[in-house]
Design a protein around this nucleic acid. Structure first.
Length: 657
RNA sequence: GCGCCUGUAGCUCAGUAGGAUAGAGCGUCGGAUUCCUAAUCCGAAGGUCACAGGUUCGAAUCCUGUCAGGCGUACCA
């Protein structure tokens, strides 16, 4: 149901109920009736009123019919079942106002910042990162669809333990110099893959000799302070890996506006400033005893502190380690404050990467600003709302960060920051074996196993994309043998992208995806290629009848056309037209519930409906003009809204399949 | 222990702030290709919505309890 008409109906109901029963209604919800023949929208409102008005629901519904019948755009209203108010819309009017954009939602003028991807820059991206990026990017597209001003940030944790581990690996395990590492990075082997393997070996290296973890601590400190040789080497590795990640994400059409580097947060004293403020507000304290002695900690207990009980160490979270280095949480507090426009510090900015079409990815910098024209730099930061796309395992840390924000700024500042949380991608024991990893009997009995970069256990994003592409090529060879190999390759890439993006979006966020190759490689049924296929077929029909696929041609006197049609067919046409037009409200739901899966389910249902439709009705060869015009309208509306939905999910439409 | 999440068809999952007969995909079985591509479509079989109470005109959905599983509770992120 569209915004405009829904508001009109809601207002009419509210007024009528007030007048007839002297009751103020809260939010009025409309439902889709279980069958299209029952109407376009149903209001179950009479049931609520029955008690208050002490009347039978049906009686109330009947009394409210006149109020709704008078609303502009309504054809007729019926009372059904025990007391549903079912509204039938004027079809012609609905289509033309929808196409004119009259029903479009209005956006706020607020700036929205979405932070996603955030891969540790020390190894290749894996399938879990694809889920993060696909969710985040789809959400960004949904926000932009409704007209929001969105800035996409991909936070780079280049001063964390994971980068330190790879530095340790190169320096102490491999005994490589900076120049050696540079040669490796510029060599033939993929650098992110080399680091993936090295990172896994470092874990073993630590395990062999406990004392070696001291190397990690010292390396971390050197990276933070940017001292030779670990600092520059860490910075070099991180930058090279980030470029690999950008390339991987470009394969699924995910892009960024800004890369904020954690090292800049340190170098530009963002953290120092936040630290000052935290101390000032007494949000943190120096621990003088227990296991956290010498650390700066934040109170993490919930509820009222019981003065009788001693505060235990479990109730505190370390913000600054005893050796003076800052944890991720500390740095993230500073970063969140900056994103919300609440820190009196600013980054320097420089161009980092330019995509083929000229779009720039900017990067923060703490170096002396290059002589870039100041007016060329977009104004970054200062988000009115901030979404942090971070997996659910970090919920506790995010909570600490938000506490910090609340203590430093205000409770309302905390509320402007959302943890857009999602569950992990795990591996089934079968997939682990398939990948050649030993699975212990204990692990074998588990439903799924966690991806572990430390063990090197995981499916790399690029490997999955490659497997999908190869499968799509071999299928394409059979179906469209006459196509040139280059064309096959391009089509296969779009199919691979569609398959991955849909796969990562179709599960609701709070579901663990137990990754299974066979399932991920499926091209039938509930899959990206199924959605793409429907779009390709619709495009072909429009091509055949020679109409502009971007335009929808509405027959004059649409309402009469519907009446003259066979009732079953009229229902089928209308169901497709009306179903397609629900896109806008689905996007609203995506934003409201922070759940991109709604978009996937909408597109699947719509594609199924269309596939059924074109099998049943021929369009190009239909001699009856009215029938042809209405069927064409259905195909055009489907094509328009379906391809938009695909676009929002980052799923491209191939030239053919 | 405490906190968060999950439990719906053989399997994987939907179910849009309580609504009409609980839906898809895969798998199984049976059909459809002289006609806009069969990566498609049509049909069939398949359910104690984990269990027990409660609230309500109405519960898969809300509340309480129980059971089962997962994650978190690090000077990793």
């Amino acid at each position: 149901m569209q915004q405009g008409i829904h508001h009109r109906l809601e207002r009419a109901l509210r007024d009528a109920v007030k007048k007839l029963y002297d009751v103020e209604l809260g939010d009025v919800v409309s439902k889709r009736p279980p069958k299209p023949s029952l109407g376009d929208a149903a209001f179950p409102i009479a049931f609520d009123l029955a008690r208050k008005a002490k009347l039978a629901p049906r009686k109330i519904a009947e009394a409210l019919v006149p109020a709704l019948s008078g609303v502009a755009g309504v054809d007729r209203v019926e009372v059904a079942g025990a007391g549903y108010l079912n509204v039938f819309l004027e079809r012609g009017g609905f289509v033309s106002s929808y196409l004119a954009g009259d029903e479009a939602p209005t956006a706020t003028s607020d700036k929205v910042i979405v932070e996603h991807t955030n891969i540790n820059p020390n190894k290749a991206a894996h399938i879990g990162h694809l889920r993060n990026a696909a969710l985040g990017d789809t959400f960004v597209r949904a926000l932009r669809y409704r007209g929001e001003n969105v800035e996409v940030q991909n936070y780079i944790d280049d001063t964390g333990v994971q980068v330190a581990d790879v530095v340790v690996g190169f320096l102490h395990l491999e005994h490589k110099s900076f120049e050696d590492v540079k040669a490796i990075a510029e060599g033939d082997e993929r650098f992110d893959y080399v680091c993936w393997d090295l990172y896994a070996r470092v874990s073993d290296y630590y395990a062999e000799d406990r004392d070696r973890t001291r190397l990690r601590e010292n390396t971390l400190k050197a990276i933070e302070e940017n001292t030779e040789p670990e600092g520059p080497l860490g910075a070099y590795i991180a930058e090279r890996i980030v470029r690999c990640h950008l390339a991987t994400m470009e394969r699924i059409d995910v892009r960024y506006d800004l890369l904020p580097w954690e090292s800049d947060i340190l170098r530009l004293h963002f953290w120092e400033r936040a630290f000052e403020l935290l101390k000032e507000k007494q949000a943190i304290r120096l621990s003088s005893q227990g296991k956290n002695v010498g650390c700066w900690v934040m109170d993490a207990s919930d509820g009222d502190p019981d003065p009788k009980e001693d505060r235990t160490e479990e109730d505190e979270k370390v913000i600054v380690r005893s050796n003076g280095t800052v944890t991720y949480v500390g740095k993230d507090i500073a970063y969140q404050m900056w994103k919300l426009g609440l820190l009196d510090r600013q980054f320097g900015f420089e161009r980092f990467h330019t995509y083929d079409d000229g779009q720039t990815v900017w990067s923060t910098t703490s170096a002396t600003p290059a002589p870039t024209q100041a007016d060329e730099i977009p104004s970054f930061g200062e988000g009115q709302r901030v979404y942090n796309v971070i997996d659910v395992r970090q919920a506790y840390l995010q909570d600490i960060v938000q506490r910090g924000v609340a203590l430093l700024a205000s409770e309302s500042a905390r509320e402007r920051s959302h943890h857009f949380s999602y569950e992990m991608v795990a591996l089934t024991p079968a997939t682990c074996r398939e990948l050649g990893f030993p699975v212990s009997p204990e692990e074998e009995s588990k439903p799924y196993l966690e991806v572990s970069g430390r063990r090197g256990l995981g499916v790399k994003a690029d490997d999955l994309l490659q497997a999908l592409e190869d499968k799509a090529v071999s299928k394409g060879m059979k179906r469209n043998a006459e196509l040139h190999a280059d064309e096959q390759r391009i089509i296969a890439q779009t199919i691979a992208r569609g398959a991955v993006r849909y796969f990562m979006i179709k599960y609701t966020k709070n579901k663990v995806i137990a990754f299974d190759f066979e399932e991920a490689l499926a091209f039938d049924g509930d899959s990206g290629p199924y959605l793409q296929y429907a779009a390709v077929r619709a495009a072909k029909i429009l091509e055949k009848v020679d109409v502009d696929p971007t335009q929808v041609s509405v027959p004059e006197s649409l309402d009469e056309c519907f009446v003259s049609l066979d009732p079953d067919e009229a229902e089928d046409v209308w169901a497709l037209v009306f179903g397609a037009a629900e896109l806008a409200s689905v996007v609203e739901a995506v934003v409201r519930t922070e759940e991109p899966a709604h978009l996937a389910h909408f597109a699947l249902a719509l594609a199924q409906q269309f596939n059924g439709f074109y099998h049943r009705y021929h369009i190009a060869g239909e001699p009856d003009e009215t029938k042809r015009a209405l069927r064409l309208l259905a195909v055009q509306m489907f094509y328009r809204e379906h391809t938009t939905a695909l676009e929002l999910m980052g799923i491209p439409v191939p030239a053919r399949m």
